[in-house]
Design a binder for these strands. Structure first.
Length: 216
DNA sequence: ATCGGGATTTCCT
DNA sequence: GGAAATCCCGATC
């Protein structure tokens, strides 16, 4: 506790109203809060506009799933993948342009008790005795979503209005410690270096190159 | 430390 | 039909 005084004012909508590859590195060191839990972002990935970024969910245009990405910037885009995981993005660019930043990893800075129970509770019910190290609480996009209590219900949530989910100024990462590289788990557009992370931070997820899975 | 298999929905070809 | 912006666990080195 006691961290809340250090995270500054919430980011305004204009922060998100620009290209995702500019927003992404600027999000490093910012603090996203949902209720009692606060997470300092240490790793993010940018996803670009329709027709321009083959790795983006919006590449082939608007669908029911990705429609939030075409809406007002500063809202959450939460999607379900691999049959079991949720991942959370912050929508970028003006209304009508489908683009977002995926929050891949962070450091829990407040609300540890709730964060831990979310991670060892329902979602991972198989082993209640499992002890999750602090640094693994939000290490990886699906883990970050669980720790922050984000799921399908929060798709479309506006983080730039008064409400339980906000992104705060925090302490922007010094440009000298920001690294950029290929996005994780992406096959199409793998060459675009739109993954950004804080160099040496223990909460950054291990990089995994895309591997094609074969069935049985 | 690293590897590989399984869980299981949504989207697109 | 099959890949996908993933994670967990057990086996093995």
């Amino acid at each position: 506790m006691g961290e809340r005084e250090l995270i500054g004012p919430p980011l305004e909508r204009a922060f998100f109203d620009r290209p995702s590859y500019e927003v992404a590195p600027d999000l490093l060191g910012r603090v996203i809060v949902h209720g009692p839990v606060a997470v300092r972002l240490t790793e993010v990935e940018a996803y670009g506009k329709p027709g321009e970024d083959p790795a983006s969910h919006t590449y082939r245009g608007r669908t029911e799933r990705n429609s939030v990405m075409f809406g007002e910037p500063g809202h959450l885009y939460v999607y379900f993948t691999y049959g079991m995981h949720f991942c959370a993005n912050l929508v970028c660019m003006p209304e009508g342009v489908g683009s977002a930043v995926l929050m891949r990893a962070g450091e829990v800075v407040d609300g540890f008790a709730v964060a831990r129970s979310r991670r060892t509770g329902a979602a991972a019910s198989a082993d209640a005795k499992r002890v999750v190290p602090d640094r693994d609480l939000a290490r990886g996009p699906a883990r970050l979503a669980v720790t922050l209590g984000l799921a399908r219900l929060h798709n479309g949530f506006d983080c730039c209005s008064d409400g339980p989910i906000r992104v705060f100024e925090g302490s922007p990462a010094d440009p000298g410690v920001i690294r950029a590289g290929p996005r994780t788990g992406v096959s199409a557009g793998a060459e675009t270096p739109w993954r950004f992370w804080i160099d040496g931070d223990p909460t950054v997820s291990p990089y995994r190159a895309h591997v094609r899975r074969t069935r049985r």
